[in-house]
């Protein structure tokens, strides 16, 4: 792999979005936009996103990873994260990827809320396909899970010498300030199917009660990945999420449609 094949840069409005472009060694015919999840999932998935991007670049795809406003290396504070802005940033990133790669056809990939963003942005960003890994479809349920984990964090004896006060943990989710507006946006989130081929990669625990029918009923399918991914385990909050089966599933899907 060429050392300088992965190029970091800023782009978008006021050059405030951080991107990492993975150029293929041959002229690209297709491209992938990798939409990151939000919050701690973004940090936990960073390594895996990089591994997947490099695998796809080696297969001849142009790949762009990026951070939404208020996340990662992009401009803005964590409390400024806004759902509608994330969807717009994905569309902005798609424009940037088309410009850099010189191709029109973009497949979007995303894990958890990154999958939700990819589905929500599919029309605006003109994605040709969406691959969503355990996307969040029911925002209300997701918010309740985060609230429960944040409440448990307050008394986490493995982390703190003594329980923290309620005010110490208020208005945050697992390490990040949360604006009331984002809480409302996610609480009301109900992700609909995208009008493009959609592959859902399912590694949620069986107990999660997930149901993907509503986004794959028309032009999609579901593939199961094992073992289940420990997304919501407080004890593994700072452990990277790595999944060779996930990389195989995504690269395999893209070879199918090559």
């Amino acid at each position: 792999m060429r050392q300088d094949a992965d190029m970091p840069f800023f782009f978008g409005p006021d050059a405030g979005l951080f991107g990492m472009y993975h150029a293929p060694s041959v002229p690209a015919r297709r491209a992938m936009l990798m939409c990151p999840p939000l919050g701690q999932d973004l940090i936990r998935c960073h390594r895996l996103y990089r591994q997947l991007a490099q695998s796809l670049a080696e297969e001849g795809m142009a790949v762009l990873r990026f951070d939404y406003h208020g996340t990662g290396d992009s401009a803005g504070g964590s409390a400024e994260v806004d759902w509608e802005r994330c969807v717009r940033d994905a569309a902005t990133a798609a424009v940037e990827l088309r410009r850099r790669a010189g191709v029109d056809r973009i497949v979007a990939f995303g894990a958890r809320l990154g999958g939700s963003v990819a589905l929500a942005a599919a029309e605006q960003a003109r994605f040709s396909e969406v691959i969503a890994w355990d996307p969040v479809l029911d925002g209300g349920h997701y918010v309740a899970e985060l609230d429960a984990m944040q409440a448990a964090l307050r008394e986490d004896a493995g982390r703190f010498n003594a329980p923290r006060s309620h005010s110490d943990v208020a208005e945050q989710w697992l390490g990040f300030d949360i604006a009331e507006s984002l809480r409302h946006q996610l609480s009301a989130l109900s992700v609909a199917s995208a009008n493009v081929p959609t592959l859902v990669l399912d590694s949620m625990p069986a107990s999660s009660g997930r149901s993907w029918e509503r986004i794959v009923s028309h032009r999609g399918r579901v593939a199961t990945i094992t073992p289940p991914t420990p997304w919501n385990d407080l004890e593994r909050l700072e452990t990277a999420i790595l999944s060779h089966p996930l990389i195989q599933a995504v690269t395999g899907r893209l070879k199918e449609v090559a």
Partner: peptide, 13 residues
């Protein structure tokens, strides 16, 4: 800082 955790998960800390 006895009250904080190792990675400063709380924004006030």
């Amino acid at each position: 800082a006895a009250e904080t955790d190792h990675t400063y998960i709380l924004t006030g800390d």
